[in-house]
Design a protein around this nucleic acid. Sequence first.
DNA 1: TCGCCGCCGTCAGTGATCTGTCAGCTTCGC
DNA 2: GCGAAGCTGACAGATCACTGACGGCGGCGA
Lengths: 221, 221
Amino acid sequence: MRVLLVEDDPRIVTDARKALIAAGYLVETATDGESAWFLGDTEDYDAIILDLGLPQMDGLAVLKRWRENGRNTPVLVLTARGTWSERVEGIDAGADDYLPKPFQIEELIARLRAVIRRSAGRASSVLRIGDVTLDERQLRVTLRGVPLALSPLEYRLLAYLAHNRGRVVSQHELLEHVYGQDREFDSNALEVLVGRLRRKIGSDLIETRRGFGYLVPAPAQ
Amino acid sequence: MRVLLVEDDPRIVTDARKALIAAGYLVETATDGESAWFLGDTEDYDAIILDLGLPQMDGLAVLKRWRENGRNTPVLVLTARGTWSERVEGIDAGADDYLPKPFQIEELIARLRAVIRRSAGRASSVLRIGDVTLDERQLRVTLRGVPLALSPLEYRLLAYLAHNRGRVVSQHELLEHVYGQDREFDSNALEVLVGRLRRKIGSDLIETRRGFGYLVPAPAQ
DNA sequence: TCGCCGCCGTCAGTGATCTGTCAGCTTCGC
DNA sequence: GCGAAGCTGACAGATCACTGACGGCGGCGA
C-alpha cells in the first residue's frame, strides 16, 4: 500500500510517517500544494492524506483539481479549521474522510485503513473466457473488444456457463438456471438458444458433451 | 435518491424533511425505533439518517440490528450526546458518519451527500456524464454548459442512474428509488419518464438493456 | 376565485426484438 | 450404417420499450 502524505508541519510529518511505516505502508511526502498536486496527479497511490492548510496552493484547491482531472484516489483530509462551512466544502470537494486536528495517530491509521478498504470494494467483476469478456455489472459482453448484443436468455446462459467454467453442465441444470423452475423438457429451445449464442460469441467457446451437457473449458494452465 | 429519516423531534423532522426534499431527495420518515428498524430492514434506501435518542428502541440498537442482518445501507448518525465514548460506540455499531446536535441543515445535507457518494465509491459531488454535468450541491444539471430544467422526478432518476454509473439498474429498483413506497408496477410511467429525461439530456446517455433495465455506461478507460 | 401552466400518469399504437416451435439436417457413438 | 442427440434456418406469436396525445391535479399569480 502506497500512501502520499501531504503536510507542511515537519513535526506531524515525522510522527505520522513513522507510524505509517510501522503500520506497513509505503510513504511518500509532499510539503506544499504544488508538488502535492503534481504527485497526486501523476503517481498512483492507494490513498492520500491531505492537510488543508498548505503553502502555495490551498489543499482544497488541490483536491478539487485532482477530482476535476478524474482522479478518484481516496483522500483523507486533515484540518485544523473546524467551522462547519469549511467542513462542508471539504466534503463536497471530494474528500473520502475527514479528521480534525489534533488527532491521535492511531485514529489516523484506522481511518486510512477504512478509506482504502472502501475504495477496494469498488472493483467490478469481469469474467474473461478466451476472446470474450463478460462484465456482470454493466451486463456487457464483448468479443475482442467489440460489444455484443445478447438477449436476456443468451446472457444468462453465458453467465451461468462462465461461472461454472471447467465443469460439464447438464441441459436439465441449464434449463433450471436460465429459464427458472417451470420448464418443459420436450423442446429443443435450449439447443436453439445455445446455437444463437454460439453464433454471436464464436462456436468454439461452448463445447458439447453429447449425452451429458455443455462445457466451457477451463483455461489451460 | 431515497432517504429514510429517523427522528422523533417533530421540529427537526419538519425542517430536515423540507430541506432534504428541496435538495432533491425522496424522503420517508420514522419516529420510533421499532418502525425505523422495520423500514430500514425491509426497504431499500440510499442512506439513513438516524437519531440515537429514540423511543421504544435505542437508535444504536436499531443500527446494530441492521448490521447484524447484513444491511449495509450507509447510516448518518445524529446525536446530542457528544462524548468521545458514545461516538466510538456509534462508529463501532456501523455508522458511516456522525453529526452532533445541534447542527446546521447544510452540514447535514453535505454529509448525507458524502455518505451516499462514498457508498457508491465516487469521489466528487459533481458528476459528469458525457456532455451532462450534475451538480448535487447546487441541484443543477447542465448540458454542454447550458442549464437544463428538470422536473423533480427527472432529477431523481438522473441522479440515481448517475450514482450507479456502470451498473445496470432494473426498472424495479428505479421505481423504488425514484418513486418510493407508493409505486405501481403495472404502468409504464417509468418508461415515459425515461423518455422525457432523454429528450432533455440527449438520448444516448441512458442505455436500455432490454429485459434487464437501464444503464449509464461507465466512462471509457 | 378563476384560469394558466407545468408536472406526471394513463393509454393506445408502433416497431423492434425475443424466443418457442418445427422440420429437416448433421454429427456422433456404437 | 443406424439411431439418437444435437444443430440450424425459417416462421410467427409474444413481449418489451418507445412515443405522442390527453387529461387530471396542484401551485401560483391576477
